[in-house]
Nucleic acid binder design. Structure first.
Length: 267
DNA sequence: ATGGTAGGAAGCCTA
């Protein structure tokens, strides 16, 4: 199965781009972030016409996440556990076949330090606890989305210029590593250990033209999911695609291909 | 070069 994640930066403004990409890339599961609308405003009919089931966790104006799946979605959970007062729509989880998937939009956290940075770090601690609970249940799972984290300097076009940004701060990277050290793998980095590749280019200052990007969108796989990992790639060209007059998102899709069943280990 | 661009809301905020 092909599982993709994409921060589309507005589901309604980006509908032509979303439909064109779904037709071309044909993911079995697509995890979306920043739909920027309430659940009843999501362009449901147009996406359903392409054969997708849809579950959203939206809010007015900002944030908002969704899961699209060609097969049935079960046991949908909205919101990241651990703070019942958190009103921001940044997390949705569901089961597709035997796989648990989450679409997550991790807080940006700038400026650092600030209340926003504290919220980011607390959110990362909650994500760590959620990953630990899923591991304890021995589930095959993928936690994917816009992590707003550059894991290493290799993932930043200008590490020195970004060293005090919330996306690169040691506190942010430490928490990302802590979750990886539970036993999850960063699918792209596992298959492309030395490659410099980005998933985001700012709209401003000609960042795309100058290839001044960041790798901040990630697919984290549990051991049972990682055993099935065949490929992981970034749809980089999408950054330059206008569709029917709609500008590109500042993020591009990243996807992985998972074998349907566990493979024998190549010993 | 301390600007630049975009989406959604609504007469700014978030990224």
């Amino acid at each position: 199965m092909k599982l993709a994640t994409w921060n589309i930066n507005g589901a309604r403004a980006r509908l032509p781009n979303l439909l064109a990409w779904l037709r071309a890339a044909k993911p079995d599961v697509a995890l979306l972030q920043e739909i920027k609308c309430e659940d009843d405003k999501f362009p449901r009919l147009e996406v359903e016409e392409l054969g997708y089931n849809i579950e959203t966790h939206g809010q007015k104006g900002f944030n908002g996440v969704a899961i699209l799946s060609k097969s049935r979605l079960e046991d949908v959970e909205r919101g990241l556990p651990g703070d019942k007062d958190d009103a921001q729509a940044r997390y949705i989880e569901a089961t597709v076949g035997t796989l648990r998937v989450a679409s997550l939009y991790l807080p940006n956290g700038n400026p650092a330090p600030s209340e926003k940075f504290d919220y980011k770090l607390a959110w990362m601690d909650r994500l760590h606890d959620r990953a630990r609970a899923l591991l304890a249940a021995e589930a095959a799972f993928v936690l994917a989305g816009d992590y707003n984290i550059c894991p290493n300097d290799r993932d930043v076009y200008d590490p020195q210029a970004w060293e005090n940004d919330a996306l690169c701060r040691p506190e942010s990277r430490q928490r990302f590593r802590k979750t990886l050290y539970l036993g999850l793998i960063d699918a792209f980095r596992a298959l492309h250990p030395d490659e410099t590749a980005y998933t985001y280019w700012d709209y401003q200052a000609g960042a795309w033209r100058k290839n001044q990007g960041l790798r901040i969108d990630h697919l984290l796989l549990s051991p049972l999911a990682a055993d099935r990992l065949n490929a992981c790639e970034i749809d980089r060209d999408v950054r330059g695609h206008e569709e029917a007059g709609a500008k590109a998102s500042d993020h591009v899709p990243i996807w992985c291909e998972l074998a349907e069943k566990g493979r024998a280990l190549p010993i």
